[in-house]
């Protein structure tokens, strides 16, 4: 089939960007969306035009690296990653608009490539259980109800792609942060640090310039891994619980 693509081109983070339009004449319906871009890039190179930079790696929907806003929707019309979107979703003659994630906290580096290290810094602020290697109890020492383990798993399947931020009119990262906070808040291993974790991760999220959540649920609708908005509710509970019952109060009260 024939496809027209309008792609955001931007030489680097300082340069001014804009859309350019390209025509593809032989697109197979079995191609993935990124394979369509491979074909387009080969076409551009043959003409001596700079190929389009875009992020991708595993191309099987799990690494979270691919990140295109397609026709206004992060990862396109299906609730998948960009790499798992196939051209059979489109029709012959379609014009497809492709942009990078748009958020202050995700600056564009080139074309469709954005800088998502803000997500790493949020994780570094508290997205872990403070255990060193070795000296841990046997794996079966603490039974965890299957329902709880499954719910923690569902939260933990977040791939950190940032579609939630790209989908949100406020560029909020609450779904991303909520998923991590939920995973650890649900599991016994994460409970000792749950308060500091919620406080620190929220503080870092704010410092990175992500916006507030206004419950439009756009994030949930676009998340390729189906992370539920209940994780945001849990994040709010965890955060409120943490700020109202901080450790200073709890530990300072009993001692003398």
């Amino acid at each position: 089939m024939k496809i027209t693509v309008k792609v955001w081109r931007q030489a680097n983070s300082q340069a001014k960007g804009g859309f350019k339009t390209y025509q593809l004449d032989h697109v197979s319906t079995d191609m993935s969306f990124l394979e369509m871009f491979d074909v387009l890039n080969a076409q551009l190179i043959r003409k001596g035009e700079d190929p389009i930079a875009f992020d991708h790696d595993c191309r099987e929907g799990i690494c979270g690296m691919c990140s295109m806003v397609i026709n206004g929707r992060p990862h396109g019309p299906l609730q998948t990653t960009t790499c798992q979107l196939h051209m059979r979703t489109f029709k012959d003659g379609d014009t497809i608009t492709v942009e990078p994630w748009r958020a202050n906290a995700f600056p564009v580096l080139k074309d469709l490539v954005v800088d998502r290290t803000a997500f790493d810094r949020i994780q570094q602020s508290g997205g872990y259980v403070s255990v060193n290697t070795g000296g841990v109890p046997d794996a079966n020492e603490i039974p965890i109800p299957k329902k709880v383990a499954d719910e923690a798993f569902d939260a933990a399947t977040c791939i950190g792609c940032g579609a939630c931020v790209a989908a949100c009119k406020n560029a909020s990262a609450m779904l991303f942060v909520g998923a991590k906070v939920s995973q650890y808040a649900l599991l016994p291993q994460g409970k000792p640090e749950r308060k500091e974790r919620a406080e620190r991760m929220v503080a870092q999220m704010d410092a990175e310039g992500f916006g507030a959540c206004t419950n439009t649920r756009a994030c949930e609708a676009e998340c390729p891994k189906g992370i539920k908005i209940t994780n945001i509710a849990r994040l709010n509970r965890e955060y409120l619980g943490a700020v109202f019952t901080s450790y200073e109060v709890e530990t300072g009260g009993g001692g003398e």
């Binding site: 872990y128 259980v129 841990v136 109800p145 383990a149």
Partner: peptide, 16 residues
């Protein structure tokens, strides 16, 4: 043991 201590949500049986 290490992974469970880190909060890796492995599959579990109903008994936990």
């Amino acid at each position: 043991d290490q992974c469970v201590a880190q909060g890796v949500p492995f599959a579990r049986e109903y008994g936990g």
